[in-house]
């Protein structure tokens, strides 16, 4: 290979650092990733686990965690949407949160088979706010195990079997080692469909018979925010605003309040860039990892 000229190399050297993420970027994505896995824990179980038994008791707890009402409906419907997206196997990224949930659901399908507590084990290493988040996660575990204990279903064995049936496609779903990947076939493997195949969301109605005050509200908060982010990514600002309003109504002082307001600022500036919005956000939530992003969106033009 012929080499680049020294001048060209120098330009590359100067420019090369510019694409690196900041510490904020890294932390922000990590948190979003944690959120997606956690949201997958709710929607994935609800959508993929089916009607009853052990798996359903997890789904039940998760739904209970949504404190019922519109928020619960939101969680479930996102789950359904995820399965749909996975089945089609298209637009995995463009959908933002929805696609994230689809993958989260698949991750979760694997986890369900390992054991209900696994979900928590997985989210822990990602936890950025150990005290708050882990406490909530723990509460979720507790409520799950309670529900499982108090509400044994006869079909538990069947359902557990069902859950483990979900796993092989996930594991075996050949990610075709990179060397086998055709450059002409860049699509994410649509075999995601196979993982959601056993899903029978229509048969499940966990929300009606559950009252669980020790709810995992964080998971619901995450679902709403992911919905807002997905809508924003798809330029559906009205839907983004709806999701954010829902979050405000249900979790006015929620753990993810700053994220909500940051996302709201992004939505506003997507409608019309306004530096004032960024300033207001920065002063209300100093140090938010979203600040840079909000500034970038609002300072436009």
């Amino acid at each position: 290979m012929n080499e680049l000229s020294p001048e060209a190399k120098e330009l590359l050297t100067i420019a090369s650092g510019a694409d690196d993420p900041s510490i904020d970027d890294k932390a922000r994505v990590r948190r979003a990733l944690m959120a997606a896995v956690a949201a997958g824990a709710v929607t994935g179980v609800a959508a993929a686990a089916g009607a009853s038994g052990a798996a359903s008791s997890v789904g039940t707890a998760a739904s209970a965690a949504t404190a019922g009402g519109a928020a619960g409906a939101g969680a479930v419907s996102v789950g359904a949407a995820s399965v749909g997206a996975a089945s089609v196997g298209a637009g995995a990224v463009g959908g933002g949160a929805v696609a994230g949930s689809a993958l989260g659901a698949k991750v979760l399908a694997l986890l369900v088979a390992v054991g209900a507590g696994t979900t928590v084990a997985v989210t822990k290493p990602w936890s950025e706010e150990p005290s708050a988040v882990e406490a909530r996660e723990q509460a979720a575990v507790d409520s799950r195990s309670q529900v499982t204990a108090e509400r044994p279903r006869t079909s538990a064995a069947t359902s557990a079997q069902q859950a483990s049936d979900v796993v092989p496609p996930v594991v075996d779903e050949s990610i075709a080692a990179p060397s086998e990947t055709s450059p002409e076939a860049p699509a994410l493997d649509p075999s995601g469909a196979s993982t959601s195949e056993p899903a029978r969301p229509s048969t499940r109605r966990p929300r009606e018979n559950v009252v669980a005050p020790s709810a995992d509200t964080l998971a619901t908060e995450l679902v709403l925010l992911r919905r807002a982010r997905a809508a924003l990514a798809a330029n559906d600002l009205a839907e983004a605003t709806r999701a954010l309003d829902e979050h405000t109504a249900t979790f006015a002082d929620g753990a993810l309040r700053a994220e909500r307001e940051g996302t709201r600022a992004l939505v506003r500036c997507a409608e019309r860039p306004d530096p004032e919005v960024a300033r207001a956000f920065a002063s209300a939530h100093p140090g938010s990892p979203l600040a840079a992003r909000v500034r970038a969106a609002c300072d436009a033009e």
């Binding site: 690196d20 970027d25 890294k26 994505v29 990733l33 896995v37 995995a92 696609a99 994230g100 989260g104």
Partner: peptide, 29 residues
């Protein structure tokens, strides 16, 4: 991963979602 996504032409405002998506796949696979 972040650099690669960026250099593959992902717009800045989409980087978060793309990076996250990539790591979700990594997590799964």
């Amino acid at each position: 991963v972040w650099r690669s996504a960026r250099r593959l032409g992902v717009a800045d405002e989409a980087l978060d979602d793309v990076a996250q998506e990539i790591f979700l796949v990594v997590h799964r696979k």
